[in-house]
């Protein structure tokens, strides 16, 4: 018997959809810019730059909304890592994904209103939302105004250094997206979790 809980209110679903749209646009245009080739134009260079810039500014606004909402509401508790015993909880969750899931075991940290993320989700979301995305945003804003970047940072060109951080952060966000999309398929059925982020209701997997 399935246990339905209303986990994703409309405002979160809209925020998530817009965030996903901006991230996907940024990854595709970013790849097109980074690997531009006159013989195999993935996307017209100037068009890719314009879309990338607008999507980037939009992502900044969306990120500020995320920060503001988490400061103002109790949602921030889901991102608060309780250090004590966290490593062992990570191992328990990793063991479940590596072995337990194939044996039909129940998830060690079932999703609830109080506990939206399992330890691995919590760690990856914190890394993305509070490390890589801020790095991405700060370097992205700097690259919009490259004339303001110092000529040299740590002995290499300032713009080059900024871009390196930008693309490395972008790479990790892309890896996160890939894993995130796969883990969404680990539901009661492969499409069940996709439905959850559309209708807001989460169903227990097992």
């Amino acid at each position: 018997m399935s246990n339905r809980i209303y986990l994703y209110p409309l405002v979160i679903r809209i925020w998530h959809f817009l965030n996903a749209l901006a991230i996907v646009l940024l990854i595709f245009t970013g790849l097109s810019i980074q690997y531009s080739n006159p013989e195999y134009p993935f996307m017209r260079f100037d068009l890719a730059i314009i879309i990338h810039n607008y999507a980037g500014v939009f992502l900044v606004v969306n990120y500020l909304l995320f920060l503001g909402a988490n400061i103002a509401t109790g949602n921030r508790k889901h991102y608060k890592i309780i250090v004590k015993g966290f490593i062992s909880r990570l191992f328990v969750q990793a063991r479940f994904y590596s072995f337990g899931i194939f044996k039909g075991e129940k998830p060690p940290f079932p999703i609830s209103q109080q506990n939206k993320f399992n330890p691995l989700q919590q760690l990856s979301y914190v890394a993305i939302m509070f490390v890589f995305l801020p790095l991405m945003i700060i370097t992205g804003i700097a690259l919009l105004y490259p004339e303001l970047i110092p000529a040299k940072i740590f002995g290499i060109g300032g713009v080059l250094f900024t871009d390196l951080i930008h693309i490395v952060s972008g790479f990790f966000i892309s890896i996160f997206l890939l894993i995130h999309l796969y883990f969404v398929t680990i539901g009661k059925t492969p499409l069940k979790n996709f439905k959850s982020i559309i209708n807001g209701y989460h169903e227990e997997n097992h």
Partner: peptide
Amino acid sequence: MNESFVVG
């Protein structure tokens, strides 16, 4: 790489 940066 050493002297300047050109996107792409």
